[in-house]
Write a protein that binds this DNA or RNA. Structure first.
Length: 271
DNA sequence: AAAAGCCCCTGGATGC
DNA sequence: TGCATCCAGGGGCTTT
């Protein structure tokens, strides 16, 4: 579910509220992708300093160590002082003086991992190979074009891989390529400099607009205060196979790339 | 080093 | 109504 916009919207919806809270207790449900990495008792008494984001990870800074939270495919967070009793898919609670932060994740591809610091081995394994942040100043055309030219995979799969640019998942990869007029199957090393510049701008644009709309709610995503996103209503190609292109009117096509579906307009994205 | 496949898991939609 | 099959916002790991 969650790509950069959904993760950022989630962060914005509880970061200010939880900052300064003190952890009273923590609870684990069924196993997530990785073990927590510390005893739940170890979290009690910690202060929550801030919530940051790196790619699709949320980093919850504590006065001692930090929690890395990933929402996987089906995860979502809630932060409230009035949560019901934990349900079957509620796999982590962080009970604090300001409310409880709860991870709900039916498929359990998500994770909550404790690390002593960002330099710790587990944190490095998860964060160490991540690419540029698309909404920050370090995302520039030169670095993007240079990195992309080294790859022979399709440009769409390079966007998804996350080692060049982070946060772009299956929805926004298709959307950004449409906005840039680039065929998803184009070999990344054949992307010209002007088209790389256009793609950079498209990635920034679509992610920023999606954050502004509260992300995309396809099935059940909601932010930590329970609000749905609305960007899916503005999708140009994602999930629109057979429907008319919003620009040229021709039918949107769907293909498979690396066992993920890709959507594009054969007319507006000729090469 | 880079690319391709496999796999983790549950639930909803679709088809017979 | 019941059951099988396919598909889904991700990404680490293993094998080429």
């Amino acid at each position: 579910m969650p790509e950069l916009p959904e993760v950022e919207v989630t962060r914005l919806s509880f970061a200010d509220e939880i900052a300064g809270a003190k952890v009273l207790s923590a609870r684990l449900g069924k196993a997530l992708r990785w073990p927590l990495g510390c005893a739940v008792e170890h979290l009690a008494g910690r202060a929550v300093l801030a919530v940051r984001r790196r790619g699709k990870y949320l980093l919850i800074d504590l006065d001692q160590g930090l929690l890395l939270v990933h929402l996987g495919m089906s995860g979502s967070l809630r932060f409230s002082s009035h949560l019901p009793q934990a349900g079957v898919h509620d796999h982590f609670d962080l009970v604090t003086t300001r409310g409880t932060l709860r991870l709900n994740d039916p498929r359990r591809f998500g994770a909550v991992v404790y690390a002593d610091s960002e330099a710790a081995p587990i944190a490095q394994k998860l964060l160490g190979k991540l690419g540029m942040e698309p909404l920050s100043a370090d995302f520039d055309v030169d670095r993007f074009h240079t990195a992309v030219k080294r790859r022979k995979m399709s440009i769409k799969q390079v966007l998804l891989a996350g080692d060049v640019v982070v946060g772009v998942g299956n929805i926004y990869a298709s959307e950004a390529l449409f906005l840039a007029g680039i065929r998803p199957t184009l070999s990344a090393d054949r992307l010209s400099r002007p088209r790389a510049a256009k793609l950079c701008a498209a990635i920034r644009d679509v992610l920023a607009r999606a954050v502004a709309k509260g992300g995309s709610t396809l099935r059940d995503f909601s932010s930590a205060n329970g609000e749905s996103g609305y960007f899916q209503l503005e999708a140009m190609v994602y999930g629109r196979e057979g429907q008319p292109c919003r620009v040229c009117g021709g039918p949107i096509k769907s293909i498979r790339q690396g066992q993920r579906s890709t959507f594009f307009c054969p007319t507006c994205q000729k090469a």
